[in-house]
């Protein structure tokens, strides 16, 4: 992940008018997005070019969706979070200054969407999908079909992975986010600092706390050791 290779150094280094002319000669198509830099896509998105945004989504949908999947713990919520993240990215892209990589910026939005949603859910009572609704004369099991695998089912594909996945899912939201960013998404400390809007020292201390918490949860699972 990260910025794709620019199509040419001249394009990136040229003045605005020259870059504009070059951009106009280079059609943006879904068939040949690899050679288009993130910077160019962002610039076009900032002008309201939906096709450029289409290519940006195409470029990052896999990583963003998987990130959302690890955070949310299920396919449907991941879909909601990832969609909302891209919509927010589109509406806010005018304010993206390019100080950080666009990937970090999108991860930051995705993280905020996840944490916002979790906060919203905590304030409202929701029933578990597995609940059985007890009626006076019968019972109704609510069944919301989710054919997609759960994170713990696909992490490694066997029992161990399931246990590790469940342990991660049981962490508080913020700690889970830290663990997923570092250990699943393989983000470096400085990138996590950008995504989480925290100083690097705070990232390290909070990640350590999350790891210690996860260690305590994993230690209780004998089968893992």
């Amino acid at each position: 992940m990260g910025d794709a290779t620019p199509t040419s150094g001249r394009m990136e280094a040229s003045g605005s008018s020259g870059a504009d002319n070059l951009e106009k000669r280079e059609p943006l198509t879904a068939e040949s997005p690899a050679g288009i830099s993130d910077r160019l896509l962002v610039r076009r998105c900032q002008r309201g070019d939906v096709e450029a945004f289409n290519l940006l989504v195409q470029r990052y949908e896999h990583v963003v969706f998987n990130f959302a999947f690890r955070l949310a713990g299920n396919y449907d919520d991941a879909n909601d979070i990832a969609q909302e993240a891209f919509v927010r990215a589109f509406t806010a892209i005018g304010s993206f200054r390019g100080d950080a990589a666009i990937s970090s910026w999108i991860f930051r939005i995705t993280t905020n969407v996840f944490l916002d949603e979790r906060k919203r859910r905590r304030t409202r009572q929701h029933l578990s999908l597995d609940d059985v609704v007890e009626l006076e004369e019968s019972s109704v099991a609510r069944q919301i079909e989710d054919p997609a695998p759960k994170p713990e089912e696909v992490v490694i594909g066997h029992e161990r992975a399931s246990m590790i996945g469940e342990a991660i899912q049981s962490l508080p939201d913020f700690q889970r986010t830290m663990i997923v960013l570092y250990h699943v998404e393989h983000k470096a400390y400085d990138e996590i600092a950008v995504i989480m809007d925290l100083p690097i020292g705070t990232v390290k201390s909070r990640l350590n706390r999350a790891r210690v918490a996860l260690k305590d949860k994993l230690s209780g699972i004998r089968e893992l050791f």
Partner: peptide, 14 residues
């Protein structure tokens, strides 16, 4: 240390 090693195991993408 064991927990860290467990976290290093590969993750399958969805």
């Amino acid at each position: 240390q064991e927990a860290m090693r467990l976290l290093d195991e590969p993750v399958q993408q969805v």
